[in-house]
Design a protein around this nucleic acid. Sequence first.
DNA 1: CTGAAAGCGCTAACAT
DNA 2: ATGTTAGCGCTTTCAG
Lengths: 342, 342
Amino acid sequence: MSDAVSRPTLEAVAARAGVSRATVSRVVNGGDGVREPLVERVRRAVEELGYVPNQAARSLVTRRHDAVAVVIAEPETRIFTDPFFALQLRGISKELTAHDNQLVLLLTEGRDDHARVARYLAGGHVDGALVFSLHLDDPLPGLIEGAGVPTVFGGRPGWSDGTDSAVYVDCDNRGGAEDAVRHLVGLGRTRIAHITGPLDQTSAADRLQGYRDVMGETDPRLVVASDFTPTGGERAMGELLDRCPDVDAVFAANDLTALGALRVLRERGRRVPEDVAVIGFDDVLPVAEQTEPPLTTVRQDIEEMGRLMARLLLSTLARGGPATGAPSSVVLPTTLIRRATA
Amino acid sequence: MSDAVSRPTLEAVAARAGVSRATVSRVVNGGDGVREPLVERVRRAVEELGYVPNQAARSLVTRRHDAVAVVIAEPETRIFTDPFFALQLRGISKELTAHDNQLVLLLTEGRDDHARVARYLAGGHVDGALVFSLHLDDPLPGLIEGAGVPTVFGGRPGWSDGTDSAVYVDCDNRGGAEDAVRHLVGLGRTRIAHITGPLDQTSAADRLQGYRDVMGETDPRLVVASDFTPTGGERAMGELLDRCPDVDAVFAANDLTALGALRVLRERGRRVPEDVAVIGFDDVLPVAEQTEPPLTTVRQDIEEMGRLMARLLLSTLARGGPATGAPSSVVLPTTLIRRATA
DNA sequence: CTGAAAGCGCTAACAT
DNA sequence: ATGTTAGCGCTTTCAG
């Protein structure tokens, strides 16, 4: 009820414990250099008064907030279809929590929101930022750079300038794609198609590159662009069947796309994997395990990537700025998970 | 880069504009009671220096943070399967953003995290809280009550004491369920089953109640408990078919459950809706529109519920505490969306 | 309408 | 090892 008024201050605790504010502060912040009996007395006073430090006052002097922003700049509705973000968020949340940091979520709905986000980051409300889903033409990285906030990106950023300086966590999209396609080749398939993701994202572009690495020059009609969604996958698969009725394998850019593709294949009476083998990417369990038949896919450890991003950022912050031997980007390996579709 | 050091202060702006700190503060906070020429001068100084107010310093004196916590206490993995939370988050985010408030996300993974959340809320880091997914035996509401932070709940809380005081936003689960079942009855179905959600959540309990309202006394074997997940829906549908092979309609507690049920029905060779009609609940588009056949379901406006929760909380905060004519809970209507399964 | 001054609650030198 | 003191950057009376 009437709380704000009555919150005890350091002063109050000090009075109660019969010590100075400084001593209480020391105890509250770890208790180093304070003798045991005093520590004990202060602890009790804190307990009795239900003292909780005022974060604003603390931040004002330490210039730290123990909070990091998570910026999700997905203009489209993918966030709401793909468990990807939720998983990543969970990893981030776990890691931040373990280090007593708070997660400030910044969702952007479009260009208009970019300025707001930039302003917020520049405002020094948070110690750092974790940024997702950049597209090639995204103005956000520039704005963030300008804000001067330590940042780790989720997925390799695609813009050209200053690429080296950007720290990111990604999975080996290209290598994973190569594995997938090689597997298809090993199965004896010869008309192997690829349904891409949005090619203005590096993850999609890299997977396409992996496909090309293995396939070399192929019938260009075997590559059809899509957008990481089930509906997009359906449309693309439809086109594919129309253009190349003899297709005998499909590497879909992600599991959701594969889901759509499977649906169309079934509708059109193609047996999977007998007539057409299918491989996805991500291994988002609720999707991949539940398709019919269960999806063979390239697994990336999404939650771990989230955790890693947070860890990287926190370690950067701990070193006091990106200057001191900044940690570098991490690219995690992928694994091909064989289920029933290939 | 080296930013924190160089961030200009009110003082700097004041100096540049040739006025006092107080005047700058007034202008920055709306400019009431400052004459136009001065306002203009100050604005320019702010612009030129790129001044951004220090939130910590401001909070220290105003005792406001312009931030609210969103607590998602979903012990299970539902968050990562069901677009429900993402949609709600989006609604909340939009509303908060519109009022210059920040969203602090608190994800809890289990009982251990409860204390942490309670401590955080009690710590006065945020002005209020939006809390989700309470189960009947959840200790969180009590802890939150204790923290003395204005709170709005997502979904009717189920615990018995002090229920009246809790403000929540929910949809008319019972009424929606009644509509669904009545529709099934109108279709001439007589063996209408219900696959429930987790009955320790009021949303699931209320939907079951709605089913009972219409069905009255029925074969108890027609009601089978589940958990809002596709896998749960599969299992439940399987049991149902074993126990009551003559079932001719199913009202599933949510769309994901319906998804699982549809899968099993297809596997077992039952035609939908000819042999068995199916209705879901939620109308989460990516799910409901994409089932085979498209799902008839009870729609609730999830994003709007999120927006409403935020609006309610903010208005409470604006009035300066829950005391002054606190806004009361809101229950939104539902609509039956007829697609192909019933 | 504007300025001067007093803190908000805390940490971090600096003394002791 | 503990206490004293000086702010962190801002808002808000209170004078003028």
